[in-house]
Write a protein that binds this DNA or RNA. Sequence first.
DNA 1: AAGAAGATTCGCT
DNA 2: GCGAATCTTCTTA
Length: 172
Amino acid sequence: MRDEKFGRTAARIVETEAYLPEVDAASHAYRGPTPRNRSMYLRRGHAYVYLIYGTWYCLNVTSEREGTGAAVLLRAAEPLEGIARMRRRRRGVRIGDLARGPGRLAAAFGLDRRHDGLDLCSARSELWLASGSPPAAVGESVRIGLSRDSHRVLRFFERNSVFVSGPRGLNG
DNA sequence: AAGAAGATTCGCT
DNA sequence: GCGAATCTTCTTA
C-alpha cells in the first residue's frame, strides 16, 4: 500500500520471485554490494527499488538479515484501492493491465528510487505491506526472463488470478 | 575506454 | 514479431 497526501493506493500481491543470497547467479547481489543494490542488504522487510533497461522501476522486498543480500521481486498485483490514480499513472490502461508485470506494478504505485530503502513494515513509511486475503492456490515455476540460474523454481503466483503476469499453468 | 547485457514494456510493422 | 527507451554493471564481445 502507498499513502500520499491525496489518498491511498493499494493492491493485493499475486505473483513474486525470490532471489537467494550467495548462490543465486541471477540475483543483483550475486557479486556483492554496488550503489544500485545496497538496499538489498537491509534487514528483511525493506524496499529495494531499481531501474531496469533505463526505463522501468521494479519493487522488491528484502528477505534476510542485515548484511545479507536477498529479496523478493513483486511481479504482479490485483488493484484494490486508488484505481483511478493508478490508471492516470498508467496512461489509462485496463484494470487488468495496471500492475500485471513488475515494471507496471511499480509504475501503478508511482515508485522510483526515492522509495529505495524504505521500511515496508513501519507505520510511518509512505509505502508499506499489509496483511490481506491469502491466495487460494499457489502455483510455482521457474523465474521469468533470466539467462543465468534460470532453472530455479522460485516464482510463486496465485493460480486462479487473472492479474498474474506470466504463465499460470501446472508448471508455470 | 567502449560495448553489451539485463529480474521490461510499449508501439509500430 | 521487432526495435526503442536509455541506467547500471560487467566484460573485453
